[in-house]
Structure formats: structure tokens, C-alpha cells
């Protein structure tokens, strides 16, 4: 069976997901969070000496046992298809390849952050990061 790990994201929304937040790409360019494109992440990772983009496919989304405000999203990460589950607030946005920001509850994301967002679904391929030369 593939290795499994689990990550818990802190129970608050980071400020950089609020619409209008200024994000610096690896080449120094500044963009608003709502204007980011898939290519911005890919190009930034290419410049980075430590980080590389991995594809993380959503395999399962279920409610958290801890709180109704949380969801557990299970990803299959990278070429090794390692199973990683992440417990996040339902409004926590992930960036889906070719699509943009998506969350388990896009209505809440739009309400709380004003960040345009679509519904995160099983089969979506999200952008995630791993270390280069990790072995």
C-alpha cells in the first residue's frame, strides 16, 4: 500500500487568501491573489531551487469528526500517488490546475474572503509543493 501521511492546517484562514492580497512571484512580479494563473505557480516553481510543483488529485472529501466547519480532503500526491489527507476549514481555497481557486464550500469562501472560487470536487487536480530531489 502507498505511504500515508496526515496534515492539519491551522484553524484560521491566512490573510493572503483575502481578495486584493499582493503576492510576489519567484521572478519578483507582484500580482493580486485573485489574478493568479496556473502558469504563475509553474514558472515560480521552475525558478525555485528548493520547491517543485506536484499534482495532487482529490480522492475523497468528507466532513470532519472534529467540527462541522472542517473538512478532510484526501489527496493522491505526485507520481508515487502517496495518500495525504488534510484537515481544513471548509472555506480553505486550493488552486486547481487550469481552473483556479476552489474550496469545499465556495459560497463561504466568497463570503469571507471575497475570493472568486469554484467547488472542489473528487478528481480535481490541485497544485501542491514538495521538495526537489526528495529521496
Amino acid at each position: 500500500p502507498p505511504p500515508t501521511s496526515s496534515t492539519v492546517v491551522p484553524p484560521s484562514l491566512p490573510p493572503y487568501f483575502i481578495k486584493g492580497s499582493i503576492i510576489q512571484l519567484a521572478d519578483g512580479e507582484l500580482k493580486r491573489v485573485e489574478d493568479l494563473k496556473t502558469e504563475d505557480f509553474i514558472q515560480s516553481a521552475e525558478i525555485s531551487s528548493e520547491l517543485k510543483i506536484d499534482s495532487s488529485t482529490v480522492e475523497r472529501i468528507e466532513g470532519s469528526h472534529t467540527s462541522p466547519n472542517f473538512a478532510v480532503v484526501q489527496f493522491s500526491v505526485g507520481e508515487h500517488r502517496a495518500q495525504v489527507s488534510v484537515e481544513v476549514l471548509v472555506e480553505y481555497p486550493f488552486f486547481v490546475f487550469g481552473q483556479g481557486w476552489s474550496s469545499c464550500c465556495p459560497d463561504r469562501t466568497t463570503q469571507l474572503l471575497e475570493l472568486p472560487c469554484t467547488k472542489l470536487s473528487v478528481g480535481d487536480v490541485c497544485i501542491s509543493l514538495t521538495l526537489k530531489n526528495l529521496r
Binding site: 502507498p2 487568501f17 503576492i23 505557480f41 500526491v77 486550493f94 509543493l129 529521496r135
Partner: peptide
Amino acid sequence: VPVFPWHSLVPFLAPTQSD
């Protein structure tokens, strides 16, 4: 105005490598 690095927006999912 605060400026945030691009990689802070991306979840860091580093699975244990089995090989």
C-alpha cells in the same frame, strides 16, 4: 501593504517516499 510569497498559497504536501 504586506506582500506574501507565492509559495505560501500552496499547501506543502510532502509524502514519505517509499523507495
